[in-house]
Design a protein around this nucleic acid. Structure first.
Length: 430
RNA sequence: GUGGACGUAGCUCAGCUGGUAGAGUCCCGGAUUGUGAUUCCGGCUGUCGCGGGUUCGAAUCCCGUCGUCCACCCCA
C-alpha cells in the first residue's frame, strides 16, 4: 500500500458498520439537550492561536506540545481547536451575547491534539461540549451532572462513575499551589524524575502521579480542600447536598485537578474501567474567570466535554445501539424494459410509504444473485419484475423472512398491496 | 516525546532452525438455462509494509524507516 494513500496518523475513518453507535449517541444526546433547554451553537474549527494560549494556559501540555498550529498566507497564527470551550466563550463575547444574559449552549465536532495515539486517544477526536454561561450558583452544576447521569441511563451504559472536587477560586488555588510546592521542595530528594519536572511547572500534577513509590509522599501532602475560600466551600457543600437529593452517587477525589488552567471551583469527571488507560469519558467544571480573562464582561460559567469515541466504545460494549434498519422491500428486475419500469415502481412505493426502506437492485445480475442480495439486505419482501410479469402487467411479491410462495399483483394495485403484505408480515413475525 | 509487541490475499491467520507463498472466509460463476439456506465444483486477488544488508538463495536473519496496537506522559 502506497504511503501517500494512508490517512493521517491518529485520524480515523468511521465506517458504515460503526456508524450506528455514533448516530445513536448523537440522537439521544441531542434529544436530551433539548429536554434540558440547551441550544446548539456552531463555532469554527480554527481559531487564533492566541485564544487557546490565553484560555487553556500557556504552560499546559495541550498548548505547549499538542496543538496543530500554522501560519495562514496572511501571516496569522491559527490553530485547529484542541477543545471547544474557548471557542464558545469567544463566540459569546464577539457576538455580544453576554450583557448579563444566561446562555445554555452546546456544540459538537472534531477536536485536534497532536498526541501519540493509543486506545481511546486520537489526534482527531470528537466531543460534545455543553456550556451554561451566566449562572453562578451550584444548581447549574448539579443539573449538568444530572443531565450526564440521565444520558448514561438512556444509553444503557453502566460502567461509569462520578468523581468530584473543588479547586476554589484562582486566588485560593494560588495559595495552595505555593504550599504544595514548599512541601514537595522539602522532599525533593524523594521525588521521581517526572515529579521533579512538574515541581516548578505544575506542582498540582504531582498529586496525579501513578508511580507507587510516590504514593506515600502524596498521601502526606497538603490537601486542596483545606485551602478553599469560604465561598467556594459553601458552593461545593450545597452542590453535594443537591446531588444527594438527586440520589446521584459520587466520590470526592481531593487530588482531581484538570489539565486546563481556566477551571475554578467545581470540577468533575465521569470515569470508566472499560477503556484501558484512558478512563475519562466526560469531564468538566466551572470556569468563572475565563470570560473576563478573554476580555468579556465578568460572567460565571460551567460546562463539560464528552468524548464521543470513548462513549461510542462504551455503547458498543453495552450492545445497546440498534443496528441499521433493514429495507422493507427489495426490488428485483431483469430485462431492460423491466428494469426501467421497476425504477418507476420503486419511486411509487417510496412516495406511498415514506420511512420504509425500498431498495432497488442496481447493477443487474441474474435472479440468483439478485435474490441473494435481497436476502442479505434483510428486506421483508421481494418485488419481482421480469419480462414475463411485465408482459402480463403484474409483479410478483415474495415474503423473504419466512417460507412462503410468491403471489402476483397487478401493477396498478401495487402500493396498496405491498402495504398490506408488510403489515401481515410484521404481524406474523412477532 | 519515551518504551514494548506486531505488519503475509478485501478480512482472519498459517508458513518449524533461510530453498522466492498457503488455508479459511469474502466475492463471482456453475450444479438449479427465472428464485434466497446448506452442500458440491470452479474462478479471482499478494511488489510477504517499504528501503538497504548478509547469502548461491530472504516472508524467514541483520540494520534502517513507515505504519498499527498497547503502555508511559497527558487527556475526551
Amino acid at each position: 500500500m502506497s504511503e501517500s494513500l494512508q490517512a493521517v496518523r491518529g485520524m480515523n475513518d468511521v465506517l458504515p458498520r460503526e456508524i450506528a453507535a455514533w448516530q445513536h449517541l448523537e440522537r439521544v444526546l441531542c434529544g436530551l439537550l433539548q429536554d434540558y433547554g440547551y441550544e446548539e451553537l456552531r463555532v469554527p474549527v480554527v481559531e487564533h492561536t492566541e485564544l487557546f494560549k490565553r484560555s487553556i494556559g500557556e504552560y499546559t501540555d495541550i498548548v505547549e506540545k499538542e496543538m496543530y498550529t500554522f501560519n495562514d498566507s496572511g501571516g496569522d497564527s491559527l490553530t485547529l481547536r484542541p477543545e471547544a470551550t474557548a471557542g464558545i466563550a469567544r463566540a459569546a463575547i464577539s457576538n455580544g451575547l453576554l450583557r448579563g444574559a444566561r446562555l445554555k449552549l452546546w456544540t459538537a465536532g472534531a477536536m485536534f491534539r497532536h498526541e501519540r495515539p493509543q486506545a481511546g486517544r486520537f489526534r482527531q477526536f470528537h466531543q460534545f461540549s455543553v456550556e451554561a454561561i451566566g449562572f453562578a450558583g451550584p444548581d447549574v452544576d448539579a443539573e449538568l451532572i444530572a443531565l450526564c447521569a440521565r444520558l448514561w441511563r438512556r444509553l444503557g451504559v453502566s460502567r461509569v462513575r462520578l468523581v468530584l472536587n473543588s479547586l476554589g477560586t484562582s486566588a485560593a488555588r494560588g495559595q495552595y499551589r505555593a504550599a504544595l510546592q514548599a512541601y514537595f521542595q522539602s522532599h525533593e530528594a524523594a521525588l521521581d524524575a517526572d515529579s521533579r519536572r512538574r515541581l516548578h511547572g505544575n506542582p498540582l500534577r504531582i498529586l496525579d502521579s501513578k508511580n507507587p513509590a510516590m504514593r506515600a509522599l502524596v498521601e502526606g501532602a497538603p490537601v486542596l480542600t483545606d485551602y478553599l475560600d469560604s465561598e467556594s466551600r459553601a458552593h461545593f457543600e450545597s452542590l453535594r447536598a443537591m446531588l444527594d437529593a438527586l440520589a446521584i452517587p459520587y466520590t470526592i477525589n481531593p487530588r482531581l485537578v484538570r489539565g486546563l488552567d481556566y477551571y475554578s471551583r467545581t470540577v468533575f469527571e465521569w470515569i470508566t474501567d472499560a477503556l484501558g488507560a484512558q478512563d475519562a469519558v466526560c469531564s468538566g467544571g466551572r470556569y468563572d474567570g475565563l470570560i473576563a480573562q478573554l476580555g468579556g464582561e465578568a460572567t460565571p460559567a460551567v460546562g463539560f466535554a464528552l468524548g464521543i469515541e470513548r462513549v461510542v466504545e462504551l455503547i458498543r460494549q453495552a450492545g445497546t445501539a440498534a443496528a441499521a434498519p433493514a429495507p422493507a422491500v427489495y426490488v428485483i428486475a431483469s430485462g431492460a424494459q423491466a428494469e426501467a419500469r421497476a425504477l418507476q415502481l420503486a419511486e411509487q412505493l417510496r412516495e406511498a410509504m415514506p420511512g420504509q426502506g425500498v431498495q432497488m437492485n442496481l447493477g443487474g445480475g441474474n435472479f440468483k444473485a439478485q435474490f441473494r442480495r435481497a436476502d442479505r439486505s434483510g428486506a421483508c419482501l421481494a418485488l419481482i419484475l421480469g419480462d414475463a410479469e411485465l408482459a402480463r402487467g403484474v409483479a410478483a411479491l415474495k415474503p423473504l423472512r419466512r417460507e412462503a410462495g410468491q403471489s402476483e399483483c397487478a401493477l396498478a394495485e401495487l402500493p396498496g398491496r405491498v402495504g398490506k403484505m408488510l403489515e401481515e408480515e410484521s404481524w406474523t413475525s412477532t
